[in-house]
Design a protein around this nucleic acid. Structure first.
Lengths: 360, 360
DNA sequence: TGGGGTGACACAATCGATTGCGGCAAGACT
DNA sequence: AGTCTTGCCGCAATCGATTGTGTCACCCCA
């Protein structure tokens, strides 16, 4: 019922050129072309062009066990973070005649597992993984099978693969520094999920930045179960309810920051008048919100590109230093959601009395 | 240098179970399982599980010429429009054990061509195409080769494939109606590229809506060469320079609308105080801008899902009505960028004299 | 008791390209 | 003139699974 992809096979080309398929194969393969006389090469090439020959990649892959396909696994393509990584990787891979296929796991470890398995069965040559969880059995399996794999954006606990990410520690450090210079001392951190390296790393960086400035930490870290607006809002509400006071928020992610801002607004707390907020990633639209968000720009495109380059090198035989962790420089985009600290506490009036003021 | 995907082949399973590979194959294939005795099926299954057998999809595909892969081709994954379509399609396909691979053509017809060719050589079972241009030779080739293909979001001139889109005519109609009710009569249309069906369709709908309301058209349609902010800004500047006056803008796309708003702002023209603007698509962040954008919500997820269903049916043998054009209902999201018309002209003072006032 | 079914498997061809090996012929060298 | 290279190409195995056809044993029934 489904017609063949293309009726023209190598034998047809060979017959047209009056040679054996083996010869035709070599003539068409740049790497083996010297084993064939120049005239024959030309005859075969002409025949191939005339017949519109396109090689069957499945058959080739079956024989050579190389497919020139790499899979990029992302947790959620609707997250504005990932399209840029995809773009960067794709451009690099295309130059080397690799095809990039993208699979979205919908943030579900089960889906991730089956997608990776499907891709492996399909003979992809390598993986770029942007879904790494801190403990990630899928990655362990890939490592076990020695499948060329590069981690991007997130890494896992066992550094068995090269990793390309942004310099999270420095990014968070800059946020805290920026806020401190604006006079903030009571700073809340909306932490990312602790099963992601970004969550852990940024939180750890936050603590360190606070400590080194002798700023109080106390209950200033609130973990969010996911990188969503809802989670950000929930976290802020939780902090407010238990009476933590703060004049600034360092969010581990733009979406958390947006959720936080909206939750505050519902309590009549305005940003940046009452509370300053920093995001993370600088998603496309962050600069266009009102006020524009102060956030950390991460070189997503370069990350994707570098991940692809690293993977290409590996697949080309240059086994990389597996524990190589490359951190690309990030940039603090100072915009409208951060302003000088005011001295008053920002708890809703009703809660003021109950406030234990963990962060005074 | 690259290890095999999986050392366990069907012969290994067969040997372990003490049967021939043919038998093992049938035992593992739900469709042919009746041809094998129940005990043998169990023995083979046990052996497969014990050895951790995963079938080699390449080999299978080579023999059966089915890969259970469909390719979704998008022009630009960073355009917030597409991730939702991807999501919708993916969910449906996953249920039928199909794998979705995504390829981004970077808005380049050449890339599109080579990507599609690569996918075909790779034996994908079908295509969902979101990159259709109005004249699109790639689509003609696919039609020629009778490759199962469904168009989504954009279609082409020759309706040789099923198409799933939003009801663009109605969407634009609602914009114009909304603006008219607010008292606008001089309405500018920022048209999409005329090599896309969305551009053509929406423009045509705009003209019709204006005509049927006896509103003046004149030079009210400005074509934008691409769906980008820059193009939107350029178009508005061009209209301003040549002296077209207007109190409202119907943009063919959200990005155009954003660019238009910014260009107006540079001329001191405020939205919605001086000019009302409607967008199209309702990208994720449109409701969060200030003012929130009035725009048309398109059921992207459903479009992707329906496209996938249609394609599945086709690949399953239900040859669809090729010219079936399905339009899903859209919804006008009335928000902050549209307001009552004021009666003054909104040209920059300097230009006022030169204004021919095409739309008076 | 023998002809005809039938169920359960084995055999081997097949998908389309790649590649080690061997053969043949022309030219080089002693 | 005979042997050795060397270049060019054909032969056939191979990748791993699917599937049409063949075979054998067993059973039914006349």
């Amino acid at each position: 019922m489904i017609v063949a992809v293309n009726k023209v096979r190598l034998v047809d080309v060979a017959r047209e050129a009056g040679v054996h398929t083996g010869t035709a194969s070599r003539a068409l393969n740049p790497a083996a072309r010297e084993e064939v006389s120049p005239q024959t090469v030309r005859r075969v090439e002409r025949a191939a062009r005339k017949l519109g020959y396109v090689p069957n990649t499945l058959a080739r892959g079956l024989r050579t066990s190389r497919s020139f396909v790499v899979a990029l696994v992302v947790p959620d393509i609707t997250n504005p973070l990932f399209p840029h990584i995809v773009r960067g990787a794709e451009q690099v891979l295309a130059e080397s005649n690799y095809t990039l296929v993208l699979t979205d796991t919908n943030n579900d470890p089960k889906t991730e597992r089956s997608q990776v398995a499907a891709m492996r069965a399909r003979g992809v040559d390598g993986f770029i993984i942007a879904t790494a969880r801190w403990k990630d059995p899928v990655l362990d399996e890939l490592a076990e099978a020695e499948v060329p794999t590069v981690l991007v954006n997130r890494r896992n606990d066992a550094a068995r693969f090269p990793y390309i990410g942004g310099d999270d520690r420095h990014g968070i450090e800059m946020c805290v520094e920026h806020l401190e210079q604006l006079g903030h001392r009571a700073i809340l951190h909306l932490a990312g999920p602790s099963d992601t390296s970004t969550g852990r790393e940024r939180t750890s960086a936050f603590r360190q930045a606070m400590r080194s400035r002798r700023l109080p930490i106390g209950r200033a870290v609130v973990e969010c179960p996911s990188y969503t607006e809802q989670a950000g809002a929930d976290a802020v509400n939780a902090a407010l309810e238990r009476g933590t006071s703060f004049t600034a928020i360092v969010a581990a992610n733009d979406l958390l920051a947006i959720g936080a801002k909206e939750a505050l607004a519902e309590h009549g707390i305005e940003c940046p008048r009452d509370v300053s907020i920093t995001g993370y990633n600088d998603a496309d639209f962050m600069h266009r919100l009102t006020p524009a968000f102060t956030t950390v720009r991460v070189p997503l495109n370069s990350m994707g590109a570098l991940a692809a380059k690293t993977l290409l090198a590996w697949m080309g035989g240059n086994h990389p230093e597996l524990s190589a962790q490359t951190l690309l420089p990030v940039e603090l985009m100072q915009r409208g959601t951060t302003a000088s600290a005011r001295l008053i506490s920002h708890l809703p009036t009703g809660d003021r009395a109950a406030s234990g003021g963990t962060v005074a």
